[in-house]
Simulated scan of single mutants.
Amino acid sequence: MSLATHVRTLGRGPGRSRSLTREEAAEAMALMLDGAAPEAVGALLMLLRMKGETADEIAGFAEAAQAALPEVGPVDLDWPSYAAGRTRGAPWFLLSAQLVAQSGRRVLIHGWNGADGQVRRGLDHLGIPVAAHAGDVRPLLDRHGIAYLPLETAHPALFALLSLRDTLGLRSCINTVCRMLNPGRSGASVQGVFHPSYRLLQADAAARLGWRQLSVIKGGGGEFERNPAKAMDAFGLRDGTLWQQSLSPLIDETRRLSESAVGLAALREGADAPFEQRIVLGTAALALATAGEPAPMTTARALWDGRARSNAA
């Protein structure tokens, strides 16, 4: 079957077109990854954008994209980072991910951030190792408990589909698929979105894929990063069941995430920056809760205090 079959399914017109089934979506993704005609790829992606993706379509796409990756696990917490060009200020969530790794959990960050180099520079500043390819992930996790897997080297075919945004001029469902990629086949994932409507879509898709734990928030610049000065709603899964929770502000202060004169390394080394520390702790606590930690904020604070004592020594 060619990709044109799926384009016809989506584009037959009012009363005749329909969404793809999960199986059809998986087949369509396999065809796109295998080098389907670029005209058909563009047509399918833009028809999906106009229609709006369903949870079955995202689940099928993600399933096929993941199947094209080698095993890199075990991973305790999946942490996608795909907020291309929208990172505001320092990527504080990287410090949060390090705290989760300090708890003894294996954390895999994977991503691509377009022309915005702040995430990649942040990895270097914090000493988070970057895998040259998927085969490097397991030994890096064994050694450090945390690693970053760049999409462009881990999954070149999916990266090429993501990069079509530059050609088409519009975001496509591939952005969501990348967030759902879960290279380590982890049962727990944390995800940030820029548009709130995607929170429930990704939760529904994760449930179809059999994931157990998931937290999705409208985070800082589209990353999984909590602004401690704002209330927010979190969506996802707990023990495989759809879950939603309203989160209250952690600090009585009105500030933007970009309003900071402190850098990542300085905060890690003990700089006096209460607002930024609350970003890190609030984000880490929600990630720890997703990974099954029963007292997430208490644990996050203890890990942070332990880091401070270590730096002082």
Rank of each mutant, 00 (worst) to 15 (best):
N113L: 10
L162K: 07
L209C: 03
K51N: 07
A266Q: 10
R256C: 07
G221Y: 00
A84H: 05
G111N: 11
D78P: 02
D239I: 01
L214E: 08
G210S: 05
A160T: 04
P183W: 00
G89S: 10
T176V: 15
R12I: 03
G117P: 15
A154H: 10
L250E: 12
G222P: 08
P70N: 08
A55N: 09
L140P: 06
L247W: 11
A131V: 04
F93R: 11
I279E: 09
G221H: 06
D204A: 11
V100D: 14
P294Y: 02
E223V: 03
T9A: 14
P70W: 00
H110G: 10
P150V: 01
E23R: 07
L151T: 02
A65M: 07
T167I: 15
A312F: 03
P249Q: 06
L250V: 04
T9D: 07
R86F: 03
R12V: 00
A295H: 15
G89R: 01
H6Y: 13
T241P: 00
Q213A: 11
D136V: 05
T283I: 10
A287K: 02
L20M: 09
L250Y: 13
N311F: 15
R138T: 04
R12D: 11
R255S: 04
E53G: 13
L303S: 13
A266P: 13
D239V: 00
R120I: 09
D116I: 07
A234M: 14
D233G: 06
T21V: 12
M297Y: 08
D78L: 09
N113Y: 05
R185Q: 03
L44S: 01
A231V: 07
L162F: 12
L31F: 01
D56R: 00
D204N: 08
R165T: 14
K230T: 01
V262H: 03
M180H: 00
V119G: 04
V137S: 09
G117E: 10
E23F: 01
P196G: 03
F235N: 10
E225R: 06
L108W: 06
A36I: 04
G145Y: 07
A289Y: 00
G210V: 00
L94G: 11
V130S: 12
I217P: 13
V41L: 15
L151N: 10
G42L: 10
R143H: 10
L170N: 15
G184Y: 03
A97S: 12
H110N: 06
L170P: 01
L140Q: 06
D34P: 03
G122K: 02
G122R: 04
P38D: 12
A160Y: 01
A37V: 14
L126H: 12
P294V: 07
F275P: 15
I109T: 08
I279K: 11
H110Q: 12
D116M: 14
N227V: 02
K230M: 13
A287W: 07
D305I: 06
T254E: 07
L95N: 10
F235T: 14
A285H: 04
S260F: 02
A261K: 15
P70D: 05
R278A: 15
S96G: 11
A285I: 08
S248R: 06
E152R: 11
I146T: 06
R88H: 05
R106N: 13
S103W: 03
C173Q: 07
L201S: 02
A271V: 08
Q202S: 05
